[in-house]
């Protein structure tokens, strides 16, 4: 028994060698604990830093939303109402716009301006994104088509509001990076495609809303066909960095008649007030 015990003890000791902690092991352990601690501390610090950065970004987004709201006050004619829908403002306040712009302009991601995203393309000014989204009048069950994905920002905004978003981009490199970006950020309800937007997305038609951000000298007839009666299509017209006006194409729910509205984003009376009063 004794030897057994001894054996057991030996065994204990043997085990102890494995399991208990000799001095050099303690030293090693404490070093690794220290390293772990440092690592954890760093991680926590980094996390809190990230949290601080996140808070900063959230603050920037909040400022951006405030700017959009202020601008919208002067856009009642285009909007057809006094302000941009609160759910759109909330979405714009949530979507990480900085993820959708190239690194070199990331500092300006939430600035009140359009930004270059390469390939001669731009991501629209936040206010214009909100305005165009508002004009689409997206409801939760809607299916929306976007022609001209760009960096995917507009699609991301729409993804929060619609059931499903289909988006087509003509420049393959942009299409690929936008698809990867939207996937990485978890936009599961956005389907992306690289190619010609002229024929729309036949498998997914009809659409409640269509947005055509790719410059075009005509409104593709297939897109009008793929628009549900009562649906709305928004087309911004202009040059890079110089939006001129928005075209809202509406398909009448009753007779299917197609009309357009030409909308200046900002209310602007071309005659000086003196003349108008006369």
């Amino acid at each position: 028994m004794r030897w057994l015990r001894r054996g057991a003890r030996r065994s204990d000791a043997w085990q102890g060698c494995r399991t208990s902690t000799p001095s050099h092991a303690i030293v090693a352990r404490s070093w690794s604990a220290l390293a772990l601690g440092v690592f954890l501390a760093l991680l926590v610090a980094a996390r809190s830093l990230t949290a601080a950065a996140q808070a900063d970004l959230a603050a920037e987004r909040a400022r951006m939303v405030a700017t959009i709201e202020a601008h919208a006050k002067q856009a009642s004619i285009a909007l057809g109402r006094d302000s941009i829908a609160p759910e759109i403002l909330k979405v714009v306040g949530d979507v990480p716009r900085h993820e959708f712009v190239p690194d070199r302009v990331r500092g300006d991601a939430y600035a009140d301006r359009p930004l270059p995203i390469g390939y001669g393309q731009t991501v629209s000014q936040p206010f214009i994104v909100a305005l165009m989204t508002d004009l689409l009048r997206v409801r939760p069950g809607d299916v929306v088509l976007e022609v001209g994905t760009g960096s995917g920002y507009q699609a991301a905004v729409l993804a929060h509001l619609a059931r499903r978003v289909y988006t087509i981009e003509i420049v393959p490199a942009l299409a690929d990076s936008a698809a990867a970006r939207l996937q990485r950020l978890g936009y599961g309800n956005v389907a992306t495609r690289s190619g010609d937007g002229y024929y729309g997305w036949e498998e997914a038609e009809p659409f409640d809303g269509i947005i055509v951000t790719a410059a075009a000298s005509q409104i593709p007839p297939p897109l009008i066909r793929q628009l549900k009666p009562g649906g709305r299509m928004v087309i911004p017209l202009g040059a890079p960095f110089a939006l001129q006006h928005l075209v809202l194409v509406e398909r009448n729910a009753d007779d299917g008649r197609v009309t357009t509205k030409q909308l200046l984003p900002v209310s602007f009376v071309p005659l000086t007030s003196g003349s108008r009063q006369r």
Partner: peptide
Amino acid sequence: ELLERRAIGGVA
């Protein structure tokens, strides 16, 4: 007036 409206989609 145009400068004031510049940022509100009045650039063009």
